[in-house]
Write a protein that binds this DNA or RNA. Sequence first.
DNA 1: TATTATTTTGCAACATTGTTGCATTTGAAC
DNA 2: GTTCAAATGCAACAATGTTGCAAAATAATA
Lengths: 138, 138
Amino acid sequence: MHPRIVDTLKRNQLSITDSRKKILEMFLQRKGALAHADIEQQSGEEFDRVTIYRTLQTFVEKGIIHTIPSADNSVRYALCKDDCSEGHHHDNHVHFMCDHCGTTYCLDHVTVPAVVLPSGFKVTQVDVVASGTCMKCQ
Amino acid sequence: MHPRIVDTLKRNQLSITDSRKKILEMFLQRKGALAHADIEQQSGEEFDRVTIYRTLQTFVEKGIIHTIPSADNSVRYALCKDDCSEGHHHDNHVHFMCDHCGTTYCLDHVTVPAVVLPSGFKVTQVDVVASGTCMKCQ
DNA sequence: TATTATTTTGCAACATTGTTGCATTTGAAC
DNA sequence: GTTCAAATGCAACAATGTTGCAAAATAATA
Ligand SMILES: [Mn+2]
Ligand SMILES: [Mn+2]
Ligand SMILES: [Zn+2]
Ligand SMILES: [Zn+2]
């Protein structure tokens, strides 16, 4: 088991349960983003669908993972690598979704450019999602 | 009825039906983006849910409307204002979702900034979705 | 305009996805 | 080990999305 798992859960004052350990491990191994359906498939019958929903929700609230918007009604989740904490996400990096293999990448080193909006709009967050073909699918 | 409705349908080689006229009118009047659920509510019992799904799909394919990604499993749709056509969208403007009132705006005059990705990624589209508070909700 | 051919619609049936309440189980604290 | 709080599984439900097909509406043709 990945050494960071228990650490992360403790640091966020979450009790150490099988499902949390397993789901967090999936994120740590897979690197790329995961949709709810991916987790459900990978885990087989190991735990209930409802538990996955609640675990993802908890992880987002605690700042362990962040959501990635999509245009296909299938939100992805990925590990936060920055200094995110309860209620304060700082995942201002660009995401990439491959049209071919479906993989979603967190481009941690590509920060979202500043966007200047018309006066009147108070911006608190900017999501940038690029899509196309990834290096594996050329 | 809005004068552009029949024009738009004809230009895209779509037959003029009640549901298409009505749904297109909603987009022309409302300006902001609409989710499937919005359309279903606004139309009451006028036509079937399935018809709405199919109409939205057709409009997207024809380049009449475009999708706006979201992080809450609720894709929005908005009128294309550019030179979009069948299979070729060019809606490279920024979108804004108000956290308070839920309105989604197409900021037609704010073009998406160029993003430079690591080599290996072939980008075909970039979506920028900002969120925060809109001018009406300050 | 009337007839025919094509397209769209509504309906039903189904699949998938997401939510809620509550009893049971598990983990943390003592 | 016992106690208390939190998390889980289950069931039941709601919401969302998909497909096939007969009926209806529209477009094309005569
Ligand atoms: Mn990310
Ligand atoms: Mn738009
Ligand atoms: Zn790929
Ligand atoms: Zn607002």
